[in-house]
Nucleic acid binder design. Structure first.
Lengths: 176, 176
DNA sequence: TTTTCCATGTAACTCGTTACATGATTTC
DNA sequence: GAAATCATGTAACGAGTTACATGGAAAA
């Protein structure tokens, strides 16, 4: 239902056709949300069927006709309900990369450390990319802020893990 | 492939039948991983077909026969490959709850704050649950540690958001 | 003239879940 | 005698993705 909330929320701010919607999501929200074109078109159709939005065709010059969507009163009610549900809820993220960590002792410590440093570099890249992301108007900027906050935390966590693994590898200050 | 890695990793530590595997995952890893019974059975079958594991039937008394799985040499090689790939990679989590945040201004500030405090309570519950989770032997404890770290961070983040929303609602220290 | 942009979709497929099916055996 | 445990699965469904299809217009 979060995808419906997203589409309704965007359409509520201004009427749009599918192509614009997809474009916006791809450009401005790529780092945080991913909703592919076919999914969006499918969802829009579904929401028309449910009476949450209406569509009307527009044509500019002789470009392909656009289907512009507008949120109905019922859609607005749905939006409010979905929004309230979303704000009150929380689903903890699942870290599939941790299952590798759980079996890291199957590798030579040096190699495990090397691989984790590669992982670290990936996080750094993601951080750079997020920092370079376009500024967001209004409350949409929370998305970026949260992602930054999260990635920074993940980096600190990973550094902790790496430090601890190094400790178990080199037990004490060894001066031969 | 992370699920395959999980199953291989567990089977590598000791041969098991499907039921035991599911039991273990449900009990000991419930908070971090979720892999449902039919998925596990399906994956085990697939891995037998791929030659990563072998199965042999065992029966104890007149209980239903068990299919005990054992990792093959090829399975071990696969495990190592999957493990290396997993350790070197990183996929940032996606926060679907943030899309609610992005549209929070559609609600009266007081209500938004109230809902976010409900969300806060959910995180607190998750934290308590994770703290109460059984101790983990070996490197499996990373899973719990990471989850704790993450939830604590999420709490701090949310508090930041709530504080900022409160600020915009009550712009300054108003002494009438 | 070939590529990119505009604008919409369909079809097939993957992955995973829920709900259901089976049947004996131990515990309450 | 009922319910939970042991042990295995199948069938149907759902959500979402990839790859493909179409076709005109503008830009390179």
């Amino acid at each position: 239902m979060d995808r419906e909330l997203l589409l309704l929320g965007l359409l509520r701010q201004s009427d749009m056709h599918g192509y614009r919607l997809n474009e916006f999501i791809e450009r401005a929200m790529a780092t945080c949300v991913d909703l592919k074109k076919p999914t969006a078109y499918f969802l829009l159709d579904k929401m028309v069927g449910q009476g949450w939005i209406t569509q009307h065709e527009e044509r500019e010059g002789n470009r392909p006709p656009r289907r512009v969507y507008r949120v109905t009163a019922e859609g607005e009610a749905q939006f409010q309900a979905l929004l309230r549900a979303n704000l009150a809820q929380y689903h903890a993220a699942k870290f599939t990369s941790d299952i590798g960590l759980a079996f890291a002792d199957a590798l030579a410590p040096a190699e495990a450390l090397d691989l984790l440093r590669q992982r670290r570099a990936v996080i750094l890249d993601a951080l750079d990319e997020t920092r370079a992301a376009p500024q967001h108007h209004g409350s949409l900027h929370w998305l970026i802020q949260h992602r930054l906050f999260h990635l920074e935390t993940e980096l600190r966590w990973l550094d902790q893990v790496i430090a601890q693994l190094q400790e178990t590898t080199v037990p004490s200050t060894s001066t031969p």
